[in-house]
Amino acid sequence: MVASLKIQDLHVSVEGLPILRGVSLEVRQGEIHALMGPNGSGKSTLAYTLVGHPKYEITQGSIEIDGKPLNELDACERARLGLFLAFQYPIVIPGVKVADFLRHAITNIRNPDRKEGEGLIPMREFRKELKSMMDELGMDGEFARRYLNEGFSGGEKKRMEILQLAMLKPRFAVLDETDSGLDSDAVRVVSEGLRKLSGPQMGVLIITHHERLLEYNVPQFTHVMLAGKIVETGDASLARELHNEGYSKVRLRHPEEAAEEAARASGRSSEAHNRTAEPASV
């Protein structure tokens, strides 16, 4: 059976400030969705909210995997249900070896009921799997012994996210600008990596400004976000159009959200946001 990640009418605030204002989206296993939109439109907010970042407060709406509501679950429980976020800015964890970290992660994800202290996946099996995956992604085996993201270049960090994705084999992967800040070689490596990994078992939501990742991973759906709402949904051609022409036409087609975007940019108070969020009388 094909599982789905279903987002319905999601409203999210950060420190009392509404950022998402009714986002609905459904990603099924095997599908690739692109999420595009100008800076500040709420793409990363959606990503963090999906995985359960405590700073992002859901004020309305729901997130479900296979009908199971996620709203009340913490990040760990969501990960064990098969949700994965490739971070835009991967975190450095000093002194924690990549291999140790991944061995714990993989054990938990494959055995979601595991308690701390219970056995880990056998070392030999794990090493073998890690090595073959690193080979496949063209990564030096030495990475496994390094401390997680410590002293990694931008490209290395992003590749490490893809390696984790490969090892954890989530049902739903969200990639938050995994292609940003990379030179074109690195973008190619990451894009090819993702192409190898995604398949009928994985639903993918790609947040991106760029086209390259989408060339390798052609989306069936492209969503455009503006001021905390998905204002348009199309196919791969919409992604190309946005990449070539920018968002000015989108803004013209959606004046209400464009006005809200302008209001946010000028840094009005949260009350002002609330007001402009009222049904407009344009």
Partner: peptide, 15 residues
């Protein structure tokens, strides 16, 4: 942020 990152990979808060 380190805690969240670990939790996003299936580690409990304590772990």
């Amino acid at each position: 942020d380190q805690i969240l990152y670990c939790m996003c990979r299936g580690l409990s808060r304590h772990e």
